[in-house]
Simulated scan of single mutants.
Amino acid sequence: MKLSVFTVATPELSPEQLAAAAKEAGISGIEWRYKEIPPEMAGETPSFWRNNLCSISPEWDDAELSRFRDAAERHGLRSLSVTPYLDAGDLGGTERVLDAARRLGASFIRLGVHRYDRMRNFRELFELQRAYLLEAEALCRQYGVKGLVETHHVTIAPSASAAYRLVEGLQSEHIGVLYDPGNMVYEGFENYRMGMEILGPYLAHVHVKNGGWVSGADENGMTRWVSAARPMNRGMADWRQVVADLRAVGYTGWLGVEDFSSELPGPEMLKKFSAFMNGLMQPSEA
């Protein structure tokens, strides 16, 4: 297994700084965040989802893409993914991302998945999602870039089995699943290995982060649980077990850090991630 970084997790670093820090940390792949930064956010302190300095604009041109490609290549790194925040059904936006990914030599993009907020029936959303994925599959085949459905809370794909229902029957060469155990802390937890076995050939990528829950009470004394990001080695996702299960199902792909704990500055977080995951991937002495 190989290590990558999703640049949403390093908002304070420019593409050039990120590539240098990843190289120093022993990380060999970059997943470029793809999202506009509105002018009113541009003067803010860098943050994960607002003024992120390592983001490709949806209004990209060749010069902008060259900057990101050159930053990776200068340090011998691979532009692994272009990772947007697409709305499910946005085929024009999907094709635009696929074009950027192909120009960068990236292997995959993240596709849009419908949000589930109790406002629309799941069955309706499921049918709309399947129709979108069928058309996205054709685009992915055309561009030679795989499209991934991420296991993510508050969507119709919070678990491995739910994601599998969305992609079942599609060609795994073109459509896959981004497996995120950190997201499954919040919603969608299943036995890791079982989920990986359910996904089978659709298991295409893995994100590494962690989270946890703490209890409190509302104004009526009812227990309420609140979730938050945690450092990757101190949350509820059992990464030792995840890595063991990935090895058991024969996964040889990428592990991409997406740490939102804010425990360390970007360069130090990348070094910690590399040391942590490489330690877990060492053969057991048992």
Rank of each mutant, 00 (worst) to 15 (best):
L104N: 12
V257A: 15
Y202D: 01
V226R: 14
A42G: 05
E173Y: 03
K209S: 00
W49E: 06
T151Q: 03
K146P: 09
R110Q: 06
D99F: 06
N51Q: 09
A217P: 06
V243T: 11
P231M: 06
R130W: 02
I37Q: 09
D61K: 00
E137T: 09
M196D: 08
Y85M: 13
E59T: 02
A160V: 04
L86P: 00
E135K: 03
L86S: 05
Q282G: 12
S81V: 06
V249W: 10
E73T: 15
Y132N: 11
K271E: 02
G43P: 01
G211V: 04
F122I: 15
A136C: 10
L203P: 11
A286R: 13
E263W: 04
T223D: 05
A25T: 07
R247N: 07
W49D: 14
V113A: 13
G279M: 01
T83S: 15
H207E: 11
F189L: 13
S159E: 02
Y179E: 03
A163F: 08
R67C: 04
R193I: 00
R78P: 03
G76D: 11
C54R: 08
E44L: 15
P11D: 11
C140R: 01
S261A: 14
K146L: 01
D62Y: 02
G76T: 03
P158E: 07
P39G: 00
D70Y: 05
E263Q: 03
D87Y: 11
P84A: 05
T83D: 01
R115C: 10
E127F: 09
E168R: 15
G195P: 08
W60D: 06
M269Q: 14
S81G: 07
R230H: 05
K272I: 04
G256A: 15
K35Y: 07
E40L: 02
P201V: 13
G144M: 07
L53A: 10
V97M: 05
M236D: 12
E268D: 14
V167K: 05
A244K: 12
S227H: 11
F122V: 14
A106C: 12
D259G: 14
S172N: 10
P38L: 11
Y116V: 08
R103S: 08
V167R: 08
V243F: 14
Y143C: 15
P58E: 02
A204H: 02
E40A: 12
E73F: 00
S79Q: 09
R96Q: 12
G176Q: 04
L133I: 07
Y116M: 00
L170H: 07
E268F: 07
H75A: 01
E12V: 06
E173N: 08
R33K: 08
Q142L: 08
L77A: 13
A157K: 09
S66L: 10
A162T: 11
R74L: 02
R165S: 02
E16L: 12
G89Q: 12
P231I: 07
H153L: 05
K272D: 14
E16F: 00
L3Y: 06
E44H: 06
R103N: 01
R74E: 12
Q282L: 10
P158Y: 01
I27S: 12
A72R: 10
E124V: 14
Q129F: 00
Y116P: 06
P15F: 01
A100L: 01
D61L: 12
G266E: 07
W49K: 05
V214S: 15
S161R: 14
I175C: 02
